[in-house]
């Protein structure tokens, strides 16, 4: 089973994401509620993939992605963001994110995106 680290400051979104991922056959190895936590947990848990929220206190998603990719250049980070932040998504890709999912997401889309990223 592939290991996922779920990063989002909203617990509702984390709950939703976990539900979707579990049903899609992933193992959730950790959760982080801000960018700083995400970086620490990534280093400890070595997940196969990270779902990363964009707007968070204490290091946002872009900063966290940048640091995670700097730590492990093969790290796979999927950005999860609201639709109005498309310009930000470009920044995220530049920071090293592999793909993105738009909130509110549907289950199939999430699983599909994660599997795609993992296959590459």
């Amino acid at each position: 089973m592939k290991k996922v680290l779920v990063v989002d400051d909203a617990s509702v979104v984390r709950l939703m994401m976990k539900k979707v991922l579990k049903e899609g056959g992933f193992e959730i190895v950790g959760e982080a509620t801000n960018g700083r936590e995400a970086i620490t947990q990534f280093k400890e848990l070595h997940p196969d993939i990270v779902t990363m929220d964009m707007v968070m206190p204490d290091a946002d998603g872009i900063q966290a992605t940048r640091e995670i990719v700097a730590f492990d250049k093969n790290a796979k980070v999927v950005m999860v963001s609201g639709i109005e932040q498309k310009e930000m998504l470009m920044k995220a890709i530049q920071a090293g994110a592999s793909s993105y999912i738009v909130k509110p997401f549907d289950a199939d889309r999430v699983i599909l995106t994660l599997n795609e990223v993992l296959e590459h």
Binding site: V12, V55, K103, P104
Partner: peptide
Amino acid sequence: NAIFRSIHSIKGSAGFL
């Protein structure tokens, strides 16, 4: 910024629900 993040978070979650 903090208010923005809170409201953003409410918005995101409300969208799901």
